[in-house]
Computed example of a mutant assay.
Amino acid sequence: MPTVTKISKQKKIADRYNIFLDESYSFSVTEDILIKYNLRKGLHLSENEIEKITEHESFHRSYIQAIHFLSYRMRSKREIETYLQKKEVAPDVIEEIVNRLEREKHINDLEFANSFVRDRINHSSKGPRLIVNELKDKGVAVEIAKEAVKQYGYDQQVETALKWAEKQMKRKSSHSYNKQIEQLKLKLTQKGYQNDVIHQVITEVTPPLDKQEELAALKKQADKLYNRYKKRYSGYELKMKLKASLYQRGFQGELINEYVADLDD
């Protein structure tokens, strides 16, 4: 039966010990494992005892890695599982570690989701649908994600989306008034807001149409289109082609007609 002939403390890792059996290095353990199994010089160990100790040590090491991973921020159950898989921890050991972490309340997907939503509310302009999708990507169940996002109320959504939309509207644009509103609606939808919030924001953020600015934007785009189309079209066909393209860009018929009428002058 193998005998412990030497126990030496590792230099780089303070609470880790090398175990020598019959004068040869066999395995290493943490101080907790050393104490738990009363490992000492002269102790005889059977093969089953050695296997049990090394399995316990492997579990303990992976568990500590998971705790370290959790020390930076809260994690979802799926994130912990994925992290341990990358560390090549056996599936049954991962399951055992995750169960222990849940029992010890180190991981709780509802608490994680609630914290995640609060962070997004305070540090992003994302809407609830996008936040729910982010939680789903992290392995959080849909029902838990939807429960957590309830804390993101309508008024707060409008306030956040409005701040973002105001910044967007301050940017210079060569697009038509209608096109700018259409693009803003699309972006708000992509950011995860519902139609009622989008409608409220658009109502509050949209300034009255400035005819001079709109006409300047139209002229800028129409001049480019005219120079492109006149190489292939002329007369009535050229005007209709111009009108169709400008309508598609959201310009109003009255302004389009003014521009096209000026072509005859």
Rank of each mutant, 00 (worst) to 15 (best):
Q221T: 08
I202S: 06
D92T: 07
R73Y: 06
I121P: 08
R118V: 02
V260A: 06
K105T: 09
I67A: 09
N108G: 10
L225V: 05
S115G: 13
Q194P: 02
M240C: 08
D15F: 10
M74G: 06
T5A: 08
F112A: 07
F251H: 13
K150A: 10
T206A: 07
K136G: 00
H106K: 14
V201Q: 01
M169C: 01
V89P: 04
K9W: 00
G153A: 06
D262T: 13
T30K: 03
Y247T: 02
I256E: 07
A244T: 08
S58L: 06
E23S: 11
E258W: 05
V197D: 04
K243P: 00
R61W: 02
N257H: 12
E55M: 12
T3K: 15
K239Q: 13
G192D: 14
E143D: 14
T189R: 14
K187P: 01
I121L: 05
E57F: 02
E96L: 10
R171V: 08
E182V: 02
K77M: 10
E47H: 06
N99Q: 13
V4T: 02
E23A: 05
I80R: 03
S125N: 11
E258P: 10
K172V: 08
E47L: 14
I35W: 02
Y247Q: 07
E47N: 11
I35C: 00
L215H: 05
F112K: 07
L186Q: 15
L34Y: 00
A145E: 03
K11N: 13
K211R: 09
L242G: 01
I67Q: 10
I198H: 14
V4L: 00
R120I: 04
R232F: 14
D22M: 00
Y193A: 14
V140E: 12
D22Q: 03
L255K: 01
A244D: 15
V205H: 05
P2C: 04
V197G: 11
Y37Q: 01
K170S: 03
R73F: 02
M1C: 07
E182A: 08
S62N: 13
D155P: 01
N114R: 15
K170N: 12
K138M: 07
Q151H: 03
T30P: 01
I35M: 09
L130P: 01
R61H: 05
K126I: 03
I67P: 01
G253R: 02
L263Y: 06
H68S: 04
E258K: 13
A165C: 13
Y226D: 09
I33A: 02
